Amino acid sequence: NQASVVANQLIPINTALTLAMMRSEVVTPVGIPAEDIPRLVSMQVNRAVPLGTTLMPDMVKGYA
């Protein structure tokens, strides 16, 4: 099963992502692949992401 990127904390809108904000977890539906975590660092979210939410490509500016 593919691990996805999950929010490790509440991430406010327009926040630049850091490693501490993300974790890898096997979830359904599948979100951004966990191997993309290094690429996500310093990218901004375009909405508030609650703790435990799977990051989807449309939630991260410049990812999709």
Rank of each mutant, 00 (worst) to 15 (best):
L10A: 06
V5E: 00
Q2H: 14
A48S: 04
S4A: 03
P33W: 12
N14E: 09
Q9T: 10
Q9I: 07
T54P: 12
L10R: 08
N1M: 15
T15Y: 15
V26S: 07
P57K: 08
P33E: 04
G31A: 04
L51G: 13
N46L: 09
T53K: 06
L51H: 15
V30H: 12
K61H: 05
P38K: 15
M21Q: 05
Y63V: 06
I13T: 10
N46M: 14
I37Y: 03
T53V: 10
N46D: 13
R47P: 02
D36K: 05
M21G: 03
M56I: 07
V6Q: 05
P57I: 07
N1F: 11
V30K: 12
G62P: 10
A34C: 03
I32L: 07
I37M: 13
V27L: 06
T18E: 08
I37V: 11
L17V: 04
M21P: 01
N1C: 03
L51V: 15
M21V: 05
L19R: 10
T54D: 00
A48N: 12
G52V: 01
P33V: 06
P57N: 05
I11R: 00
N1W: 08
V6M: 08
T53S: 08
V27S: 14
I37F: 04
V49S: 02
A34M: 10
Q2S: 13
Q9E: 14
V26E: 14
V49N: 01
A20Q: 15
Q9C: 04
Q2V: 10
I32W: 02
S24K: 15
T28C: 02
L55W: 00
L40F: 02
D58N: 14
A3D: 07
E25P: 01
V41A: 08
G62Y: 15
V5K: 00
V49F: 02
K61N: 13
N1T: 11
I32S: 00
P12R: 09
N14G: 09
G31K: 01
A16I: 12
L17S: 00
A3E: 08
V6H: 02
T18F: 04
P50R: 11
I32H: 00
V6N: 02
I13E: 15
V45G: 01
M22E: 01
N14M: 09
Q9D: 13
Q9M: 09
R47T: 11
E25A: 10
T28D: 08
G31N: 00
L19I: 12
L55S: 01
M59R: 03
D58H: 09
I37K: 07
Q44E: 11
P33M: 05
Q9W: 11
Q44R: 15
A64M: 11
P50S: 14
Q44G: 04
P12G: 07
A16V: 14
L51Y: 05
L19H: 12
Q9R: 15
A3S: 08
R47E: 08
S42F: 08
R39Y: 10
T15F: 10
M43T: 05
V45Q: 00
G52H: 11
R47W: 07
G62Q: 12
M22T: 03
A7I: 08
M59G: 03
E35W: 05
P50I: 07
R47G: 05
V45F: 00
A20F: 14
M22H: 00
R23K: 12
I11P: 00
I37Q: 07
M56R: 08
T18G: 06
V26T: 10
P50Y: 07
I32G: 01
G62T: 14
V30S: 11
A7Y: 00
S4Y: 04
I32F: 03
I13C: 04
K61C: 03
T15H: 09
N46F: 10
R23E: 06
K61G: 07
R47D: 07
D58A: 07
L40G: 01
I11D: 01
T18K: 13
V41D: 04
R39F: 09
A3N: 13
I37T: 05
N46K: 10
Y63P: 05
A16Q: 14
L40W: 02
V60H: 00
V5D: 01
L17D: 01
V41I: 15
P29S: 05
M56H: 07
D58Q: 11
V27T: 14
G31W: 02
N14C: 03
V5Y: 01
M43C: 03
P38D: 14
G31M: 02
A34Q: 10
K61R: 14
P33K: 07
A16R: 06
A34W: 09
L51T: 13
D58S: 13
V6T: 08
A64L: 12
V60Y: 01
V26C: 04
L51I: 13
T15Q: 13
T28E: 09
S4R: 02
A20N: 06
I32E: 00
R39H: 08
I32P: 01
L19V: 14
Q2Y: 11
R23M: 15
Y63D: 04
N1K: 12
T54M: 04
G31F: 01
P12W: 08
M21D: 07
L40T: 02
E35R: 12
V49T: 05
A3Q: 10
L51A: 13
I13S: 08
M59P: 01
L55K: 00
E35Y: 11
L10V: 05
E25I: 13
Q2I: 08
Q2P: 13
M59L: 07
A7W: 01
Q44N: 15
I11Y: 01
V60F: 04
Q2F: 12
Q9S: 13
V60T: 02
V5N: 00
Q9L: 10
A3G: 13
I13F: 06
A64P: 12
A3T: 09
L17Q: 01
A64I: 15
S42I: 03
P29K: 09
A20K: 14
R39P: 03
P38A: 10
K61W: 13
V5F: 01
V30Y: 06
A3K: 15
A7L: 04
V30T: 12
K61M: 09
N14D: 14
D58K: 08
I37W: 04
T53L: 06
G31Q: 03
I13N: 07
V41Y: 05
P12I: 09
R23L: 06
N8I: 14
Q9V: 05
T28L: 06
A34G: 05
E35N: 07
T15G: 08
S42Q: 15
D58V: 07
S42D: 14
V26K: 11
A16P: 10
V60M: 06
V5A: 14
L10D: 15
P12E: 08
E35H: 07
I13K: 10
P12V: 11
A34S: 09
D36I: 04
T53C: 03
A7Q: 00
T53E: 10
L40R: 00
T28W: 13
A34N: 06
M59A: 12
V60N: 01
V49W: 02
V26I: 05
A3W: 06
